[in-house]
């Protein structure tokens, strides 16, 4: 009985999230932007998993509805680091996106395709196609455009402009098609990331009253659409599980997930 209950308590910690983290997603003006790429469990602040060399890392920017999007490859800016999570340290990446790339007004859609990660305990691979959307100066562009990822979340609200207490909506897609009743996990980044110190704060911001609160599990509707509330300022991760088309990697099962990051701010 004790073993069973321990097992149940351990389940929320198994929600993996590929983080693409910046301190501020809505910039007033173009600037060079430090970014952290960490594969972890953001509510608990760990354990953090070792990332392999990302397969693709790029940004698609667009100023205005009708403008042509501009793609910049960002792999050249990746630097391997060790990230100190709560309880362990693991291989991660950092990147300083130069001002030349982030200088124009408009939206910036960052896409990360990581190398599949072998989850030894489950003997399966996980690959999370991750999207972070920033804005410079308030001119919108391509924040809601599909980017052609095999596993993707299309935002229906701007991920960089959310009041605390607001509702965020999105669509889960597999190769551009909505995934009915997609399995979705939501986590709050509960240990403040410190990009300079390459670490999560050891202190948690909130305490989950029950294991089901740390990693919240919901389903999309029949059209693949989901809606979540944003009850606290900071970063919220949404991960749609098993949505990508490739199901095998190196003769083991593969889960291709889609991750989207949302920033909420207090109304004050």
């Amino acid at each position: 009985m004790v073993v069973v209950s321990l097992h149940i308590m351990a389940v929320p910690a198994l929600a993996h999230f590929q983080m693409l983290y910046v301190e501020e997603s809505a910039l007033e003006r173009g600037a060079s932007v430090p970014m952290g790429l960490v594969f972890t469990h953001p509510f608990a602040g760990g354990p953090t998993m070792a990332m392999g060399q990302p397969r693709a890392f790029r940004v698609i920017s667009q100023r205005g509805d009708a403008a042509q999007p501009v793609t910049s490859d960002l792999k050249q800016y990746l630097q391997p680091i060790q990230w100190q999570g709560v309880g362990n340290q693991a291989a991660a990446y950092q990147a300083v996106i130069p001002r030349e790339v982030m200088r124009s007004l408009g939206d910036y859609v960052f896409l990360l395709e990581p190398e599949p990660y072998l989850e030894k305990e489950e003997d399966k691979y996980i690959q999370q196609f991750t999207k972070l959307i920033m804005n410079v100066g308030g001119v919108p562009g391509n924040w809601s455009e599909l980017q052609g990822m095999p596993a993707e979340i299309q935002p229906l609200n701007k991920p960089y402009a959310n009041w605390v207490g607001g509702v965020f909506r999105g669509v889960v897609l597999s190769e551009g098609k909505p995934v009915p009743f997609a399995e979705i996990e939501i986590e709050y980044v509960n240990h403040a990331p410190d990009l300079t110190g390459k670490a999560f704060a050891t202190k948690a911001n909130v305490t989950a009253p029950h294991p089901a609160y740390g990693n919240m599990s919901i389903r999309a509707d029949a059209q693949g659409v989901f809606a979540i509330g944003l009850p606290r300022a900071g970063w919220w991760g949404v991960c749609a599980l098993h949505v990508g088309p490739v199901k095998q990697h190196l003769n083991k099962p593969l889960s291709q997930d889609a991750v989207l990051w949302i920033q909420a701010k207090d109304m004050k």
Partner: peptide, 18 residues
């Protein structure tokens, strides 16, 4: 928004509705 680009000033303009 305006910034220095090479030996010129580049200004970019737009609207909040895109």
């Amino acid at each position: 928004d305006c910034y220095v680009e090479a030996d010129q000033i580049k200004c970019e303009a737009g609207f909040s509705d895109g």
